[in-house]
Amino acid sequence: MNYLIHLLIYFDIYVIVALSLNLVVGYCGLLTLAHAGFYAIGGYSYALLALVWGWGFLPAVLAAVLLAAVLSLTVSLPAWRLKGDFFVLATLAVQALVFSLLYNWSNADAPLGSWSNLTNGPFGIPGIPRPEILGVALTDSRHFVLLATAVAALSAFVVRRLTASPWGRVLVAMREDELAARGLGKNTRLFKVQAIAIASCLTAVAGALYAAYVGYLDPSSASLDESILMLSMVIVGGLGNFRGPIIGALILIALPELLRFLDLPDALAANLRLAIYGLLLVLMMHFRPQGIGGEYRLR
């Protein structure tokens, strides 16, 4: 039972990530590699605010979301001008900078959270507290799963409403033909800023949930590998609609568990899982470029 709860919490977290990434990649048609950066920014903001300054869960998450929204400008401003491979490169630069900051903003002599040792560098932040909501401490996983599922459901609802709204239709129009959308009087730059900001906020929430659940965070959550994993999740699951990313998150959760039955040594299993991901990406591009349940083909 505990095992299933653990899986469910991971599934909740990744559903939020996949749905938000789909807003950028699937609805705006902008392939981004910076998503793990915002995930880690959310996680780190929550961890530091809760651990060092003793903030509660809700204000800490709110602050993380605000920070992610402001920093999302680093991705959305390049999106005004750059397209295709160049936009991917710009997001890669953002990703590398976030990782570099988290990895290097440390000083072994200063206490954690002070100005010269904000992130504790490669050693990460241990002992992140579980949230306390309305006076109830969610130290038990059985209680935490309720919170995670509620947040995931709320995010899914928000994404669903947004994409079904006129706002979502403008995103699709912009993806298909930006010039035409501008010709119809839509401020496409503003829409890009909004969509990327919303996606970054959602993934920051997911990062905060992850930090609160695992209790430990290190810079690898902002690594390029993590971004690639998130990207392959939405690409395999499907782009441009609601069910695609959820299928992708399910596969991401299910695949390692299925490999567990093969009884491989641990090191080999991790490599094999990633190798299967690589193979899936290649096969997808050949035989079903829109993903398993998706509607949009990457340009």
Binding site: L31, G84, D85, V88, I228, L231, S232, I235, L268, N271, L272, L274, A275, Y277, G278, L279, L280, L281, V282, M284, M285, H286, P289, R297, L298, R299
Partner: peptide
Amino acid sequence: SEGAHLVSSLGLYILLVQLVAM
């Protein structure tokens, strides 16, 4: 599309590196 080439190339990279590691 350009994106499909990019993603499949990324997939090949992951596959190859994991095989090397194995």
